[in-house]
Every structure is written in structure tokens, then in C-alpha cells.
Simulated assay, not measured.
Amino acid sequence: MTATTPDVWLPFAADEIEGLPDCFRYRRWDGEDAYPADPGDCAFYVTPYMKSPAVTLRPLPAMPDLQVVQTLTAGIDHVLGGLDGLRPGVRLCNARGVHEASTAELTLTLILASLRGIPGMVRGQDHEEWRSGFYPALADKSVLIVGHGSVGAAIEDRLIPFECARVTRVARSARTTAHGPVHALADLPRLLPDADVVILSTPLTDATRGLADAGFLSRMKDGALLVNVARGPVVDTAALLAELESGRLRAALDVTEPEPLPAGHPLWHAPNVLITPHVGGSTSAFEPRAKRLLARQLTRFAAGEPLENTVLTTG
């Protein structure tokens, strides 16, 4: 810590957050054109939530004394491009623990709505049509979770009551967790053909960009459902469109590439696809959990203690 009182930039008003230490000057900034103060005085930068990388990264070059970048998202791909210009030793922390419950809720919502034909029933209600019939159940289905971090584990917890035949886990590397064995990404070619539902909940990295490409999708069984709650670029949109338009696969997408999905894009009207506008973490649970995380982090920062969720350190 410097002798002068350092600034902390927050996307919330400081008086809305209980438990903040009183040894900082708190500046509210949520991506507005004008900065709340001189960025050069900022030591702890909490990035605006769900703003573009251009907005999020704009103040970083003017923050020579920065010590911590704290995102309010689980993913960090939107800030990585701005870290090269920072001095060594700046810690990047994510929001692990904030979004798991909400994202897992939406994942189950997308799966159940897609399998049970809810979008078609809503359209039928609009036209006063009684669209009865038999629909697939989640019970007895085989589910593959690609990306078994904290979000993937939360999804699996919520799958348990639905009596799936099997849940298979995949992550960057093989390991054993409390949920059971986790396979490596290299095992996907042999695992995909057995899955009725494939859930993408992996971070966007060089290894996962375009992971669900034509080859990946071709290995999925006929009629399988692809659910993407990760990042849009994890899926090759052109390859997915080809599979949807052929009628072979179904999809439920909370994220797309491009995003936001522009009007007129063919994905909007592709058959057997359900699209939600990247709302996995945007629920009433977000603000209370985010504010509790910030109070803990800043208390630790003030005391010189290790921070939670440190993903990397520059330099």
C-alpha cells in the first residue's frame, strides 16, 4: 500500500455494499464515458458488468499503480487483451462463486424447455392451438458436461434429481473430483456418440475456441441436444447451423457467435434451436453475491491477505 489513500473503482455505489473497509476512496464507474476520478490513483479495479471489452479495458493504460483487476464474471476472456500493458504483479481475479447457481438454473431450464417442446407450446398458445403429444424426458438420458469447473459441478448437482442414466464429465485434463472421474478433452471423440445431451460450460481459451466444430458435432448422436452456456466462440456457428438445418441435432444457446445475435442472422430461425440472450448469470442472485465477494476481497486486500479467485498475475 502507498502512503496516500488509494482509489477503488466499483460498478456499484459503495454505500450499497456492506462490510467494505474504510481505508480506501471508493469511486463508482460502470462504463460511462467520463471517469469518476484520475485512473492513475486506482489500485483496485472492479470491471463493469456485461460491458464490451472496449469499455472494460479503456481505463487500464492509465492505471500505472493498479494492483488488482476483479471481474464480476466467471470468464476472463474479455479482459485478457488489456493485461499486456500492465506492470508486473497485477492480480486478475474472477467471480467464482457468484454465477454458479444462476447459470446452472438456466442450463436446466434450457434442457427441459428444449426436450419438452416448450417453445412450440408457447407459440401454440399464441395461436390458441392445443399442441399435445409425447416429448422427450430428461429422465434416463445420458448427459455429457464439457467444462467441469465450478459451473459444471453446479449443473451436475441440479441434474441429480432428474434421474439421468449417466452424467459424464470432461475438463481440460483428467482428474478425480467429489462428483467422480473427469475425462480430458482428448477423450471427447469417444464420449460424444453416447450422449443425449451435451452441455458446454467451459471457459473460452485457445483450447476451447471452436471446440464444437464440424467434427465435434458430427460425432454427436442423431437427435442429441447441444446446450451452450459457456461462450459463443466455443461453437462453430456455421457448422451448428448446418446440423440444425439438416434436422439431425437440436440446440439451446444462451451465448452465440456473433453476440448479440444481429437481426436477420439465420440462427434466429433455424429449426430446433432455443436462444436466450446471455442471461445465465443475470438474475436477482447476482448483486447480493457480487457485493459479498467484493466486501471479502477488499477486506483481504486491505489486510494484505491472499485474494480469492486469483486466476493469474501479470509479469
Rank of each mutant, 00 (worst) to 15 (best):
T2G: 12
P6V: 05
V8A: 05
A13I: 02
A14C: 01
L20P: 00
L20I: 01
C23K: 03
Y26S: 09
R27L: 14
R28W: 10
G31R: 05
A34P: 01
A34D: 15
Y35Q: 04
D38W: 02
D38M: 11
G40H: 04
G40I: 06
C42H: 04
C42A: 14
C42G: 09
A43F: 03
M50R: 15
M50W: 08
S52I: 10
A54I: 03
L57V: 03
P59T: 12
P59M: 03
M63Q: 01
P64N: 13
Q67L: 13
V68K: 01
Q70T: 03
T71W: 09
T71S: 12
G75Y: 14
V79G: 03
L80W: 04
D84C: 06
P88N: 08
G89I: 11
G89D: 11
V90G: 07
V90D: 04
R91S: 12
R96N: 12
E100D: 15
A101L: 11
S102W: 00
T103C: 09
T103Q: 08
T109Q: 14
I111Y: 02
I111T: 05
L112M: 14
S114P: 01
S114N: 07
L115Y: 10
R116C: 14
R116Q: 15
G117P: 11
V122K: 13
V122C: 08
R123Y: 10
G124L: 07
E128H: 15
E128L: 15
E129K: 11
W130F: 14
S132W: 15
G133P: 11
G133D: 12
A137H: 10
A137T: 15
V143K: 05
L144P: 05
I145N: 00
G147M: 01
G149K: 08
G152C: 11
D157C: 08
D157N: 12
E163R: 14
C164V: 14
A165E: 15
R169K: 13
S173I: 01
A174L: 01
R175P: 00
V182E: 06
L185S: 05
L188P: 07
P189H: 12
R190K: 13
L191M: 11
D196I: 05
L204M: 03
T208C: 02
T208I: 09
G210W: 07
M220L: 12
M220N: 07
G232Q: 08
G232H: 11
P233D: 09
V234M: 00
L240C: 00
E243W: 10
L244A: 10
G247N: 08
G247S: 12
R250L: 07
R250Q: 15
L253Y: 10
T256V: 13
T256G: 09
E257G: 06
P258K: 13
E259H: 11
E259I: 09
L261K: 02
A263V: 13
G264K: 06
G264D: 04
L267R: 12
P271R: 06
I275L: 15
P277T: 14
V279P: 00
G280V: 09
G281I: 13
T283P: 01
T283Y: 06
E287W: 08
E287P: 00
P288Q: 07
G304M: 02
E305P: 00
T313R: 12
T314L: 02
